[in-house]
């Protein structure tokens, strides 16, 4: 039976790694890219990344056919496999991020702080890009699946991850830091940054699609599933209109960017749009099966109740770990009130 091998858990995994990448990039933006407006939410973003980073292997392990053998990744290192890289990158990232949060929250006044922070951020930038982009590399380098095989996919994965991560940080900052005096200019900058990345990521998804279509690896039969088939609602409706055009128009105005309700709606829509992009890429890509040369079949797929519950559960766990992070690490942003 030909069926979907990588299901909603892999979609969630890809989504969470994107969130980690995006929130981490926001956290190091003041140090590395001199975006001083975001300084106030730097450590807060790191904790957001930390919470989701800790939860990121769970969907991956749940998707395995033999989850109890997951430690085999460490027992039998295979450098030729990109997937084997995950275990190592994850551990390095957890250690680096934990160290960075401790330095940022406890040793901010130390003489060596600035130099240490810049150094760790530079290493962290590289690791986070590998962490957030390597799944896109796996998908893009899959020559057996023409719908996936694209060199632009890793870039789109990174851009969508940064967009979603920035939206998540903004959303959580509005909810968590509102009473602690979240500065309007920080929210405004975050909104602008998310807007730019959203626009770039959407353009790249269109380039990705048009290049594969132009190169005739994506025939009309396969394109039609996205445009008029049963993925159309998710592709055009959620990915481009609800999660793309509407938030772009909303965030383009400063009034929405600095308002609580307006920006919350825009950021939730962006998160839904990016999740939809991952769904269309991963599950949609597997629904199109090549039966014979130039002959394709479309597989039906509906997530099971367990998969939906697991998705909600893992996202809730990520949020719980984020709250735990806020509790155990002394966040400078909270100092005034707590």
């Amino acid at each position: 039976m030909t069926n979907i091998i990588w299901g909603p858990m892999i979609v969630l995994y890809s989504f969470i790694t994107g969130l980690v990448l995006g929130s981490y990039i926001i956290s190091i933006a003041p140090t590395l890219f001199k975006m001083r407006n975001l300084e106030g939410i730097s450590t807060f973003s790191m904790v957001t990344a930390w919470g989701f980073l800790l939860a990121s292997p769970i969907p991956l392990v749940l998707e395995l056919g033999s989850p109890l053998r997951a430690p085999n990744i460490y027992l039998y290192p295979t450098p030729s496999s990109v997937m084997a890289l995950f275990g190592y990158i994850w551990i390095i990232f957890v250690l680096l991020l934990t160290t960075q949060i401790i330095i940022h929250s406890r040793y901010r006044d130390a003489a060596w702080f600035q130099r240490a922070s810049t150094g760790i951020s530079a290493i962290g930038l590289v690791i986070s890009l590998i962490f957030g982009g390597y799944f896109g590399f796996i998908i893009g380098s899959m020559k057996a699946r023409e719908v996936w095989s694209s060199t632009i996919t890793p870039i789109t994965t990174i851009l969508s991850g940064i967009t979603a991560g920035a939206a998540l940080v903004a959303l959580l900052a509005i909810i968590t830091l509102r009473k602690d005096g979240l500065r309007k200019d920080a929210l405004n900058s975050l909104g602008k940054l998310t807007l730019y990345f959203l626009a770039i990521y959407l353009v790249f998804t269109l380039i990705e699609l048009s290049t594969t279509a132009y190169a005739e690896t994506l025939t009309w039969t396969r394109l039609s599933i996205l445009l008029i088939g049963y993925l159309a609602l998710s592709f055009i409706g959620v990915q481009y209109i609800l999660g793309g055009l509407i938030p772009i128009f909303m965030l383009a105005t400063e009034k929405v960017r600095t308002s609580t309700i307006g920006s919350i709606v825009a950021f939730i829509l962006i998160l839904a749009g990016v999740y939809s992009y991952k769904w269309n890429l991963i599950i949609g890509g597997q629904q199109i099966v090549e039966v014979s040369p130039q002959l394709y079949s479309l597989l039906n797929f509906m997530p099971t109740q367990t998969e939906i519950l697991a998705t909600v559960g893992i996202l809730s766990l990520s949020l719980f770990l984020y709250v735990l992070g806020l509790t155990i690490f002394p966040i400078p942003e909270f100092k005034s009130k707590r």
Binding site: I5, L64, R69, N72, I138, M142
Partner: peptide
């Protein structure tokens, strides 16, 4: 006895 069932090989097989 070693396979973890990740499905990567299934996806990679043309």
């Amino acid at each position: 006895d070693r396979c973890i069932g990740c499905g990567y090989c299934i996806q990679a097989c043309p």
